[in-house]
Design a protein around this nucleic acid. Structure first.
Length: 730
DNA sequence: TTGCTGCTCTTTTTT
DNA sequence: AGAGCAGCAA
């Protein structure tokens, strides 16, 4: 392999970022400046030119998808010698380490990974165990607090010590209880994965030494979004050599609420003396108006290092702003634009993306897209692996692997309903805690029950089912194990018997789960991991995000939150719901920090656009089932006006609608009817901006109210109000 | 114990 | 508007 090939096509700064292999390196990479390219070429350069073996490199990315893509791109440069190269998220990397080493910390290696729902139910239990009432002490808030502590690397003792008020005292107390429950269940939550890895390295220097000497070169992507524990982990791993390359952009720091600490990147040069700094400021993605607009917004942040992005792409469309009267109108506008642009601009659907601030906003757009048969893909929202039936199946599997997994057991014991209700579960819990045994043991005792427990026979049957599953599933491949579970538990049968459309959907989801499990086995056939196949499968499932499953290659319009849009790019972007209290979100407007993060989020959304950026808002919006009136986002005013074009109704219109009660129709799109100068009669050929070519079937109404029934070639029969339709003669 | 009804609460964003 | 939950009847 030619040495030069890893540097080919890189600009001088990118090249420097690749070639500076020794010591700490900070790459400040503006949006669209080719940072992924730098990372992949750097890895290839390390291995291909410097002769570093693959196992000597660790690359940490933000999502599993990014990890997969990175590995793929490195393989393209180097060939398939990347097996021992570790690329993963912080969480997946920690899981792999812990599966090998966690026995040092007194957990057993079959530990379960608890997601948010599992963790919440355990917090609830912890609250009760501390003699408090979950209705009074909000479990969600406590969970949030615990998570924040974990992100800061604080264990219960430290949290209790630093608690400054009664609330914190109480939370710290529950935190301690919660950790005991986790330990009893042999389970870790997301935060633990990081915290325990750091603890492991701290307490067992020899274990740390093993990994620190293995990974001679470490790369971290999206460094602006790392939290304190992640920082400490990286510090531990690089203590020996300091060969650390971090890539990030302070302007794209959008996870402060999750514990990301922007100090990590701002203080990097102090924390790692003799840091080389490379700035990537040339943008390869967007046209000048988009870049000017986005920079205009983010430069309103006071706490910001100055940075100048530039692009060679002069010209290009202005940023388009549309202020709709209602949220429904907004959705109609966006979908109408997509349809028109797909036709006239000759674009394929995958070139469009719709970004919103909150998941709940997706619904109207989905409905509208559905109405016009536009293929689309929603990223996020209700996650596949969190759907009730999918999670039920997985909990059976979890229980087979880890009999102490109380959250899984509680979930599964009466699914499908088998007569083991709340009372019986409580009795088993009592039994278990009295004997200091697991919940499963509690059930077992109940099942043997000579005491007059009415449900004893049913519990016994469940225990037998469980033992059967353990025998048949433990050594099986995940897909086979799941099939056995769904069969023997009667789960599938219960759904089939149900027969309702919802049940049909559930069955469909379970089939999809089986397919996913089969795909998994195929992909991991030659894995040299020392976890069992089921273990790896469960680990993966626990840590996948929807973004990971998102392919982005099919002929579909993409819908997602702005957070999920990070790292992606699209030719045409619609950033919607730009209203005060939505974007910026009401929850973040209180303090300057929160507001600045919202602004960065807006910047991230805007800079995803390559050619055309559309920003929309609605004056009136239904929220929580009631009407709300909004004001256009301040971010819209922060965009330099010379790069903006207002489309459709102006702000005056929106203001009128807001103050004037009855909502007025928007005439700005009204065109002269196609009938001008001649009669419209059935048989006339017309072209509609959205539905395309068609033939008039019938005419009704007069003047402005004239309606046409049109048979469209592609869209079927629709009734169209001539006034709004902007029809042309075809 | 189940399943129904009517009430509450939600919404930030997610590895 | 919709989901999730508590409370109640069968």
């Amino acid at each position: 392999m030619e040495n030069a090939s890893f540097l080919d096509g890189l600009n001088p700064e990118q090249r420097r970022a690749v070639e500076t292999t020794e010591g700490p390196l900070l790459v400040l990479a503006g949006a669209g400046s080719g940072k992924t390219r730098v990372l992949t070429h750097r890895i290839a350069y390390l291995m291909g030119t410097c002769g570093i073996p693959p196992e000597g490199v660790l690359a940490v990315t933000f999502t599993n998808k990014a990890a997969g893509e990175m590995r793929e791109r490195v393989e393209k440069l180097l060939g398939p010698q990347t097996r021992d190269l570790w690329v993963g998220t912080f969480h997946s990397t920690c899981v792999r380490i812990l599966r090998r080493e966690i026995s040092h910390l007194g957990y057993s290696r079959g530990f379960a990974i608890y997601d948010e729902a599992d963790s919440l139910s355990l917090v609830k239990e912890a609250i009760t165990k501390r003699g408090l009432d979950p209705k009074v002490v909000d479990p969600r808030r406590i969970r949030w607090r615990i998570d924040a502590w974990k992100n800061d690397g604080m264990k219960p003792a430290a949290a209790a010590e630093r608690a400054t008020d009664i609330d914190d005292d109480q939370a710290a107390d529950i935190y301690a209880q919660y950790q005991r429950l986790l330990a009893d269940a042999n389970a870790l939550d997301f935060g633990d994965l990081l915290v325990l890895t750091v603890e492991l390295f701290e307490r067992f220097p020899r274990v740390l030494a093993h990994y620190a000497s293995r990974w001679q070169y470490i790369l971290v992507d999206e460094y602006q979004d790392t939290n304190r524990v992640q920082y400490r982990l990286i510090r531990q791993l690089t203590s020996a050599h300091g060969n650390l390359c971090v890539v990030g952009d302070p302007d794209q720091s959008i996870y402060g609420w999750r514990g990301a600490d922007i100090r990590n990147i701002l203080d990097f040069e102090e924390d790692y003396p003799e840091t080389e700094v490379v700035r990537l400021e040339r943008n390869y993605r967007s046209t000048q108006p988009i870049l000017t607009g986005a920079t205009g917004v983010v430069s309103n942040n006071l706490a910001r290092k100055r940075k100048d992005l530039y692009t060679d792409r002069e010209g290009g469309d202005q940023i388009r702003i549309h202020e709709a009267a209602t949220d429904r109108d907004e959705a109609q506008f966006v979908v109408g634009e997509i349809l028109a642009s797909a036709r006239e601009g000759d674009r394929s659907y995958q070139e469009f993306a719709i970004f919103y601030r909150t998941n709940a906003q997706s619904r109207l757009f989905e409905e509208e897209l559905l109405k016009y048969d536009v293929p689309h893909e929603v990223v996020g929202g209700v996650r596949f692996y969190e759907r009730a039936e999918v999670k039920d199946a997985l909990c059976y599997l979890r229980l087979v692997i880890n009999p102490r997994d109380t959250a899984a057991l509680r979930r599964v014991v009466n699914r499908p309903t088998r007569g083991i209700g709340r009372t019986t579960v409580e009795r088993a819990e009592l039994e278990a805690s009295q004997r200091g045994e697991t919940l499963l043991e509690g059930f077992r005792v109940l099942g043997e029950g000579t005491s007059g427990v009415r449900s004893a026979a049913k519990v016994r049957a469940f225990i037998q089912l469980y033992e059967l599953l353990v025998r048949e599933c433990t050594a099986a491949e995940p897909a086979d194990a799941l099939a056995i579970i769904l069969d023997r538990s009667g789960y599938m049968k219960a759904l089939e018997k149900d027969g309702s459309p919802e049940a049909e959907g559930r069955i469909e989801n379970l089939r999809e789960l089986l397919t996913a499990a089969e795909d998994f086995s195929r992909a991991n056939a030659d894995s040299d991991d020392d976890r069992t196949s089921i273990e790896i499968f469960l680990d993966q499932v626990a840590l996948v995000s929807d973004l990971d499953a998102y392919a982005g290659t099919e002929e579909t319009v993409s819908l997602m939150t702005v957070h999920n849009a990070k790292g992606l790019e699209f030719p045409v972007v619609f950033l919607v719901g730009l209203e005060e209290r939505i974007f910026p979100h009401s929850g973040s407007m209180g303090d300057e920090q929160g507001l600045e993060e919202e602004r960065r989020l807006c910047y991230v959304g805007m800079t995803r656009a390559m050619q055309q950026l559309n920003l929309t808002s609605a004056a009136e919006r239904v929220r929580y089932g009631s009407r709300n009136y909004g004001v256009p986002s301040r971010f819209l005013d922060e965009i330099p006006q010379e790069v903006v074009t207002q489309i459709g109704s102006g702000r005056k219109k929106a203001a009128r609608s807001r103050s004037g009660g009855g909502h007025e129709l928007d005439y700005s799109y009204a065109q002269e009817p196609a009938s001008e100068g001649g009669d419209v009669r059935p048989g006339l050929r017309v072209v509609h901006p959205v539905f395309g070519a068609g033939t008039v079937v019938s005419v009704s109404g007069n003047g402005l109210d004239q309606k046409l029934k049109i048979q469209f070639e592609r869209a079927g029969i629709k009734t169209i109000l001539v006034r709004y339709a902007n029809l042309e003669l075809g």
